[in-house]
Nucleic acid binder design. Structure first.
Lengths: 338, 338
DNA sequence: CTGTTAGCGCTTTCAT
DNA sequence: ATGAAAGCGCTAACAG
């Protein structure tokens, strides 16, 4: 039969409430009592019943990971980190896709939270950039952590200096002698697209290269949009010798087009991406890109969220490190186009 | 304030229990009453409290998706299907990675089920092939659905005729004139590796090609293992003109090696994979592979599971269709190796 | 076919 | 610092 709190209380010679206090880390318990109860609970292999706990406590011990159509690899990494943190803190996790383009999406999230009594949310891009959503959550006092949000002072979650990473990438290309460096922007709804574009601009400026609008085309983070952009760029009268795509999928699209046109990479064209997804190692040549520690980011965001759930005054915005992955798709700009 | 069952009962002029009956689709309610209660519940926007329901009902209205280190894309597709089915049936889903290589993994699953009172499990490969787990779940009468299990009569879930798909792939290669067709096997723990290999054998037999053991090498479904296998095969005195890898990641590894060696695909070497993951469209040339409807499979498996939870006598093993995706990595065996 | 009475296992008051 | 009693919102068992 299932071990109940009552059994633990009896075995430890205290009341149910005291056991409950120990379980919930409430401070007002004598240390000796706490230790004894913990020992008994462990020896009986007691685990509180989640339903009973949440019914009585008016909370679910559940957080939800919300996402809208992200890359599978990225999301899986984030998810793995979230799961790790949840396990450690004895919290449960549910995953929920939400279509942020739908008019009623804020309401959808609201009722999701209400119906399941969710204790907190982990938001991933581009949900992190919906002011309407964030405002409403603040209003409702629903704790949430953002992964890579566009600026928002005082929020909790994790960020990465994507702008600086992009700048560094451009500096790398410039140092190889490239002066015609193109950029394929990411989906307009993502804050990341802004940052990466700004980093591109900063990199050019720092290298003393003028910004040429014809070298910047809009993509939407998909492989196909990368291909389209590549065609547009390579059809230019004075085409670029290097292309910085705002993510790996688009960079893969560029490389595919380049191969199709018989261009050598990196001899004729250098290509680089962002995210360090598995495809960056699986294409030929391997792709120079920016690594972000998505799994750690998921874990850290969740840890901060859980802290904020316990104490709304806590919860930080943590800064995570990025790392350039220099592989074989980038090189000196030396070959002459025929 | 939250609407409770009591409020619905009062508004409909019936007892709480009658409302409960309507909600749970119990048959013993007069049609007129049922309709009235449903109307009132909807107008009040009533949604039962999951915690209270599960505490009183001794069940969680939760299913868990269990996995062990699968490809991110595959899992995300399955997960999406599971979420769809859960939404439709008003069930919740939790995801749980479990390391099936650990000695205590069956116990881990057991306590997971017990502690969260999970109503059912969705198993993905290779968990579907752990006899120990399946036996224990049967013993405990815990409903579960398998996605692509190795044979098990009477089980519930979804399957795909992977053997036949592999055979068809080999037939395709043979019809293009290939006679030296190699196979890179998948991870030994996966039933899929067996099937695909058997399909390979059948395909050769049907084409009247002798099975050459030196053309079959062991991989483990990873990109790197595909590269290693490719090196081994291409170093042979009489190398293959076509390689059938047991999944796309390994096929991508093969293509990378081929490019590195200056081989033309498909001129010098035809390559094909299995699974139709995004990478198959993102590499150059695009990869010929086998598509499996992973999302539908996840949904269907969940639907069957949910049926089985309601009525243990129901729940089927559904057969799903596959489809060959013929792209640009395969072609006639015509070029002469230099 | 419908209602009444007890809980499910825990946390909250409010005492002490 | 600890305990007793009263629910949380729902379903189970038994009546009628």
């Amino acid at each position: 039969m299932r071990v109940r709190i009552e059994d633990v209380a009896a075995a430890a010679g205290v009341s149910m409430k005291t056991v409950s206090r120990v379980l919930n880390n409430e401070p007002t318990v004598k240390e000796a009592t706490r230790l004894r109860v913990q020992a008994v609970a462990k020896s009986l292999n007691y685990r509180p019943d989640p339903s009973a706990r949440s019914l009585a406590g008016r909370r679910s011990y559940l957080v939800a990971l919300l996402y809208d159509n992200p890359s599978a690899n990225y999301l899986m990494e984030i998810l793995t980190g979230v799961v790790e943190a949840c396990e450690q803190y004895h919290y449960g996790m549910v995953v929920q896709p939400v279509a942020y383009t739908r008019a009623d999406f804020v309401q959808t999230v609201e009722s999701l939270v209400a119906l399941s009594r969710l204790d907190g949310l982990i938001l991933t891009p581009p949900l992190t950039d919906s002011i309407a959503l964030l405002d409403r959550l603040d209003e409702l006092r629903i704790p949430y952590a953002c992964v890579s949000p566009k600026v928002r002072e005082g929020g909790i979650g994790v960020t990465l200096d994507e702008q600086e990473a992009a700048r560094e990438m451009i500096s790398l290309l410039a140092s190889m002698g490239h002066t015609r460096i193109a950029h394929i922007r990411g989906h307009a709804a993502h804050g990341a697209s802004e940052w990466r574009h700004e980093g591109y601009c900063n990199g050019l400026r720092q290298a003393g290269i003028d910004y040429d609008p014809s070298l910047v085309v809009q993509g939407e983070f998909s492989f196909d949009s990368g291909m389209q952009a590549a065609h547009a760029l390579l059809d230019l009268d004075d085409p670029p010798t290097a292309i910085f795509a705002a993510n790996d999928d688009m960079a893969a699209g560029v490389m595919s087009v380049a191969h199709g046109r018989g261009l050598d990479i990196p001899g004729d064209l250098s290509v680089c991406g962002f995210d360090d997804t598995p495809v960056s190692r699986q294409i030929f040549p391997t792709l120079t890109t920016v690594h972000q520690p998505a799994r750690d980011m998921g874990r850290q965001a969740t840890v901060e969220l859980l802290k904020a759930i316990q104490d709304p005054a806590s919860g930080q915005m943590t800064h995570m490190p990025y790392a350039l992955q220099i592989r074989h798709s980038t090189g000196p700009a030396h070959r002459q186009r025929t």
